[in-house]
């Protein structure tokens, strides 16, 4: 059986290199039969696409998609320097 660290590294590599995602900042953890995705993405479609690419790179694992979509607020405050 492949060590979970190598599976996580393969998924992380796929997320960075797959043209559909090219995401570098996603945290990937494998625990038993589960694969956890954590981090922030720009929209819901992207969140789902990342889970799809991760699932393809690690078939057989249950993907737990814990990615959150960045909530872009309108700036209200300014910092005085």
């Amino acid at each position: 059986m492949e060590a979970p660290q190598y599976v996580a590294a393969r998924v992380q590599g796929a997320l960075a290199e797959d043209e559909r995602t090219n995401e570098l900042g996603i945290r990937v953890d494998v625990r038993g039969e589960q694969l956890f995705l954590r981090g922030q993405v720009s929209c819901e479609e992207r969140r789902e696409l990342i889970a799809d690419v991760a699932s393809e790179a690690a078939p057989g694992l249950v993907v737990r998609n814990e990615l959150t979509v960045v909530d872009v607020r309108t700036p209200e405050e300014e910092e005085k320097l």
């Binding site: 872009v72 700036p75 300014e78 320097l81």
Partner: peptide, 9 residues
């Protein structure tokens, strides 16, 4: 977490 930061110099 906001559309842009504003820094006043």
């Amino acid at each position: 977490g906001r559309a842009y930061g504003v820094y006043c110099l």
